[in-house]
Design a protein around this nucleic acid. Structure first.
Lengths: 130, 130
DNA sequence: GATACTGGTTACTTCAACGGAACCGATCTC
DNA sequence: GAGATCGGTTCCGTTGAAGTAACCAGTATC
């Protein structure tokens, strides 16, 4: 059983460390999707496999360095696959794995909430400034 | 209609800026929940109103400074409310607003995915290291 | 009269993400 | 032989979030 997100116990030091444990599933997931470019790359790959340059164009203003970093991280997490063809000029195709594709579902739920409620959030932010 | 998360157009410069627009709803939401402590605070408040010190104890190792910053940000977004009672010693109660409470739903979806699939992610990370 | 509790604030430091620009080897085109 | 394409890599600098530690006023308790 994974460690819990919050302490439900008596607050001894031993378990207090679990709160921030890198093994906490929610922390892992929210940490990854909180990174600036993760969402863009995953959503850009939704239609199907794509080459590096096409991906870069689709995401928009991302630099090649950051795109590479993001892709390596997602590959390491098993969310994205990388296929390099030995040709010249080189060709590399990135695609969502089934695991990565399954993540699209909760993302969609979060996006739906965002579309529905962000106007309220922005309104609240405006009020907070005044 | 809000700006889209990705470019579906011809890639002219004018619309390219919208991709990273601070008005993009998904960016706003994922930006906020990606921040390190947001999730802990929101989930800690799920049972009901809570005082600063109790909240701090429940979240675990968070410093008062960071907790204050997080609460102020959530308050500014209209997700958390703050009620100060003029007493001594001072008493302050924080609670989820209805808007904040509505966010618990997509968060639960994401947590469910996390609980179900993070073992695969960790396994993939282990493989990537070898 | 000293101590602790409450809900913070302030100043300083550290660290990782992110961005900019230049560069690479191999191949194909002009 | 000059330039473009592809998929990156390398170096350097900036920035903002987070952590550490000390401190505060007012009251109640010992």
């Amino acid at each position: 059983m994974p460690t819990s997100l919050l302490e439900e116990n008596d607050g001894t030091d031993a378990s207090a460390k679990d709160v921030l444990s890198p093994d906490c599933p929610s922390r892992i997931v929210f940490g990854r999707i909180g990174e600036r470019w993760t969402m863009f790359v995953i959503l850009a790959l939704e239609p199907g496999p794509m080459r590096f340059t096409a991906l870069k164009a689709r995401v928009g203003v991302i630099t090649p360095k950051v795109l590479t970093e993001t892709l390596r991280a997602l590959e390491g997490d098993g969310l994205v696959s990388r296929r390099a063809f030995v040709e010249s000029p080189p060709r590399v195709e990135y695609a969502l794995t089934p695991l990565g594709r399954s993540l699209l579902e909760p993302i969609a739920a979060m996006r739906a909430w965002a579309e529905a409620h962000v106007p309220e959030v922005l309104e609240s932010r405006d009020r907070a400034l005044s």
